[in-house]
Design a binder for these strands. Sequence first.
DNA 1: CTACAAACTGGGAGCGCTTCCAATCATTCC
DNA 2: GGAATGATTGGAAGCGCTCCCAGTTTGTAG
Lengths: 343, 343
Amino acid sequence: MDAAPPDRSPTLDEVALRAGVSRSVASRAINNSGNVSAPKRAAVQRAVRELGYVPNPSARALATNRVGAVVLAVATDVPGIFADAFFAQVIYGISVALERTDFTLTLVLAGRPEGAAKLQQIVRSRRADGIMLMNLHGDDPLARLAEQSAVPVVFGGRPLRTEPRWYVDTDNRGGARLATEHLVEAGYRRIATITGPLSLDVAEARYRGFQDAMAVAGLPAGRVEHADFSEAGGAAAMARLLEEHPDLDAVFAASDNMAAGALRALRAAGRAVPGEVGVIGFDDLPTAQHTDPQLTTVRQPVEALGTEMTRMLLSILDGSRPTPLILPTRLVVRGSTRTLVRH
Amino acid sequence: MDAAPPDRSPTLDEVALRAGVSRSVASRAINNSGNVSAPKRAAVQRAVRELGYVPNPSARALATNRVGAVVLAVATDVPGIFADAFFAQVIYGISVALERTDFTLTLVLAGRPEGAAKLQQIVRSRRADGIMLMNLHGDDPLARLAEQSAVPVVFGGRPLRTEPRWYVDTDNRGGARLATEHLVEAGYRRIATITGPLSLDVAEARYRGFQDAMAVAGLPAGRVEHADFSEAGGAAAMARLLEEHPDLDAVFAASDNMAAGALRALRAAGRAVPGEVGVIGFDDLPTAQHTDPQLTTVRQPVEALGTEMTRMLLSILDGSRPTPLILPTRLVVRGSTRTLVRH
DNA sequence: CTACAAACTGGGAGCGCTTCCAATCATTCC
DNA sequence: GGAATGATTGGAAGCGCTCCCAGTTTGTAG
């Protein structure tokens, strides 16, 4: 325990000196790449401890051409969308997956042009070893980032028209089917849907899942309104639906937020939920439990999305070539749908 | 426009070569540190453009001992707390403030021991130029990070017992006073409060603000329950309050989430809001608009918190020595409190 | 005891950039 | 016209680390 804290942190040379070995040996001992005899290794470890040595990441990065950082880029410009609990959960999942490694997480909000430029910059200057990219709209030029850059890109959710080499996605279509089937089983028949913006793959997939299930049930799938995944949008869409299809008896909203809006609109219109109209959402965000009645919904494993993206990226950096991953969804029945079939 | 994209990005030397100048001049031109004649500067800029040159951050960091990254560390272990929209908004604010600089944002969840260790590591190895630290509990050893490290630390919110050198905080005490005064003015008299965990400065400050206002109004401030800022906690605390102080006619909950819980508990107990019992929250998160009735609350400028922390940190890195900043709050009246005084 | 393979070791050359400094050039002022 | 002044310039020394490679040591078999 030396009293005076050094104003400058010790370098590898100092460690080597103290351990009585050459810098090369010290380096090898620290990175435990072989070819170091046991006693010298021990001496180095001791010196490291005594000196409180921490390798300088910049120097290491310069020498190895790997920086020890991954970036999460979220292509959203609206604070509202990012502020959603969704991304917080993803980030949490990523952090957990990164905890045991010594990678660092860099966050880029790439929605606005400045952010996208920043992301480009990061990629081109190799400030990160890999990228996780989320929330791309159909026309987002960032979708091509993957091809342009030497750095591997893992997508969270698929971009609209292309199938990226690496991605983790939720089984949106299957989940939507689950939701719709649930409505059908509960005895609802005149089922409508509120979709997200169809420029988003998620939105399209969920819409397709709805159509799938309706077709299987032999029901018409024509009661449709589009919104933007937001609560306000959901409320407006619900109002439009009520106007055009006053006979509807259930609605599948492609997000909990929109479902919450729908709930609000239904109450305003004096329709009882779940008695007269059943409502089901998607996501199972905290919101779903704050509505009245609480939302029946489809749970997507958001945190797992983060962890799995990270795992995939790390394994790629590690040399393996994983295949895309689709995470399963699960129905969560709460109060906004009837649970028993009426005969 | 060369056809073949280079497998390796160009270096400063190549730029210099192409521009017909020395590396030093190229460097100076690029960083526009003076002493470069106009023609050479132009030549360098042209070469940079033609080659698509981007400086290597690691090399630069190694040479300058500045890495171009700041970290946001959030000391929370519960996913639930981080998943709150609050942090997402802070992050958004930070990103916006960082957009125009070429700093990068590194995110560390430092609640669990692994995360804290990682933060230490980052600091000690100078992987970041500065730190923003949020959500410290009273006893968090990270509070001393500021003294230990050569890197400047800006606190978001104050730690409990110490006054850090640099911080940005919301005027929690003043905001709580605002909230309580509003209840008093609306004619409520038997006012209770649900505090957050008093090991958090925010919670304590809001509690004090409540006491302030009650004292000024000459009302007793003895109806108190403590919770954990969560909705469930708020509901439980409200239930306890109703049990112990059945005569209460209003409650100030120190967070919107707790207020939402309180609302739920009140409905369960059959008390009408705002008629029989007034409820006011704090934060003005999205939640506040999703409750029924919508929450009257105190708005704190969360995004601004992020921007201002960033601004402060950058100015410190720039050599200036700013003073702490307290952000103002503002009352937002919605449906959970009566608006007119009854006589 | 010699020959040879295997296991270590440390010197040294970078990685790409900044920055000090001595040298060069252009100006300006008597 | 020449010296003094200041603006430019480029050579070179690092920043701290990795890793190749030639040299040394150790061990083993013949």
